[in-house]
């Protein structure tokens, strides 16, 4: 009925269809949700996107803003995805070497909750740094890691 289980982007949650908020401009709506680990969030759906964004704000309107910013940033990085793939390939072949920091993930347009749950699934909770080599190989399993590699490449001056 009112509560729906959902697994997406490494997060298992239940959301409440009886607790829905719509943004002022009508382009977004959010359901109150809780993960199977007991963390509250807003599951935000934006016009033209099938997958929801996981926002950990208490206020749904902050959640709309956070989702909007992330989507805008994701679109910008997506327009340079060929560069991202080239950097990842070079990291895998050892032609480029740099570490990727947790800060790169935090500054990327990936939601913090998804990053946390992803790292947990891989037994990497609490990790602060990983070799670009490993992460680029993991990107073959989870393509969204490209957003983190992009952020690290910016910091390293490999991309600008």
């Amino acid at each position: 009925g009112d509560f729906i289980p959902l697994r997406s982007d490494w997060i298992s949650l239940f959301y409440d269809t009886g607790h829905k908020v719509t943004s002022d401009d009508g382009s977004q709506y959010a359901f109150r949700a809780i993960t199977t680990r007991g963390e509250y969030l807003w599951l935000v759906f934006s016009a033209g996107k099938t997958r929801g964004y996981h926002a950990e704000t208490t206020c749904p309107h902050s959640a709309f803003a956070e989702a909007r910013e992330a989507l805008t940033y994701r679109r910008a990085v997506k327009s340079r995805w060929d560069d991202v793939r080239a950097v990842a390939r070079a990291l895998r072949r050892g032609k480029l070497r740099f570490d990727v920091l947790i800060e790169d993930a935090m500054e990327s347009p990936l939601c913090a909750m998804g990053t946390r749950h992803f790292l947990r699934s891989f037994g990497l909770s609490g990790i602060k740094r990983i070799s670009g080599f490993k992460l680029a190989w993991m990107m073959l399993i989870e393509p969204q890691l490209g957003f983190v590699i992009y952020q690290a490449a910016l910091r390293e001056g490999v991309l600008s």
Binding site: F14, R32, T36
Partner: peptide, 16 residues
């Protein structure tokens, strides 16, 4: 990990 039932109860408490 919380059960489905616990999750539903917690969500119900969040309703306005």
């Amino acid at each position: 990990v919380i059960t489905k039932l616990a999750a539903y109860e917690l969500l119900a408490q969040e309703r306005p």
